[in-house]
Amino acid sequence: MHKPDHLTEHDHTEEQRRTRTDGTQSRQRLLHAAMRLFAAQGFATTSTREIAIAAGTNIAAISYYFGDKAGLYRATFRSMSPCTPEAVECFTDAALPLRAMLSAFYAMLLGQLKQGEDARVGMRLWFREMLEPTGLWQQEIDHGVRHAHEALIRTLGRHLGLDPAADGDRLARLAYSVAGLALHMMVSREVIDVLSPQLMKDDAAIDRWIGRLVDYAEALVQLEHAAPTLP
């Protein structure tokens, strides 16, 4: 006896939903396993077989979702990049006052710290790429970091009434100083966990620190506003 048509369509829809869900989960498991292995061993010495076993899937899934090991590495590396076009757009909104702009900027850079162990592994992956470059770090600078840095310069220039074309070095120094407050948190996470673990013990602690960074950065901007022009 055949099922009514509406049940057949429902079963088909459910099967499609399960397939999409399973596919998303498989892809995420591969990314998660690859991040840990690439961070610990580097790109060259990590095999697709190791990744597939760690992810609980088969090697063919790597080809299906990422093309090859290099494609998986690119996806893993870029999944940790905070400087997405959407995030940059959030802090460069011309309607934002200075404090709100700085808050959005630090939320972009430091939001991933709330991912716990994944954040630590992601930072180790970045360190590994810098020590054993495959070319992705340069691509990240060219297509992610550079865009965010130049956007921060323009935004700080707008708040200070300075022209990036005429005051580029002055604004660049300020932009590096503002970003450096956050970068220290990122690269020193494991040291902080040993010396002052309470400062980053949970999301609330991280938010408190980000709030203080906004205070520090606002003071830097105000100091720059009052400072004489440097060569």
Rank of each mutant, 00 (worst) to 15 (best):
D169V: 08
V191A: 13
Q138E: 14
A204Y: 12
V214K: 07
F105K: 05
A60P: 00
H6P: 03
R20S: 10
L102Y: 14
W126T: 12
S47D: 07
W209I: 15
R99F: 07
A182E: 01
G144I: 11
E190A: 08
Q41S: 11
G161I: 04
A54E: 03
H143V: 07
D142A: 11
V214H: 06
I141H: 14
S188E: 12
T48V: 15
R128Y: 10
L213N: 05
F91C: 03
C83V: 06
N58S: 15
H159Q: 04
E117F: 10
G23A: 11
E86S: 12
L37C: 06
V88N: 06
L160E: 11
A34E: 00
H149F: 15
A179M: 10
M200N: 07
L171S: 06
Q28P: 00
A34K: 02
A100E: 08
Y65M: 02
R158F: 14
T19L: 14
R20F: 15
L183D: 15
A151K: 04
Y73S: 04
R189C: 08
E218H: 08
L110H: 02
R49D: 14
T155S: 10
P4K: 12
M35S: 14
I192Q: 02
T229V: 07
R49G: 14
V187L: 08
A227D: 05
T45V: 03
P228V: 11
V194T: 13
G67K: 01
Q115P: 00
G71F: 08
R27V: 00
V221P: 00
L7A: 11
A217Y: 02
F77C: 05
L136D: 05
E132W: 14
L220E: 10
R99E: 15
L102A: 10
Y106K: 01
Q198H: 15
M200D: 09
R124E: 07
K69D: 01
D22R: 13
R189W: 13
Q139T: 15
L213K: 04
M200P: 00
L156I: 05
V187I: 14
G135D: 00
L199C: 10
P133A: 13
T45M: 06
M108P: 01
G71A: 03
L37Y: 10
D93S: 07
R154H: 15
A175R: 01
L162H: 13
A94W: 11
R27N: 00
S196M: 08
A175H: 05
S26V: 13
P231M: 07
L152S: 12
L156Y: 10
G122V: 02
T8A: 04
T48H: 09
V88R: 07
E140G: 03
A119R: 01
A182P: 00
R78S: 05
Q222A: 13
S63V: 12
P82R: 02
R29A: 06
M35C: 12
G135F: 06
L152G: 12
A87K: 01
G56D: 06
A205E: 10
E190D: 14
Q28K: 06
R212H: 14
R120E: 09
P197C: 09
C90K: 09
A34S: 09
D163E: 04
Y216L: 07
L37H: 09
R158D: 11
G168Q: 04
A205M: 10
M1R: 13
K114N: 03
G168H: 11
A166S: 13
G144F: 15
A55V: 06
I206P: 01
T155Y: 08
A95K: 11
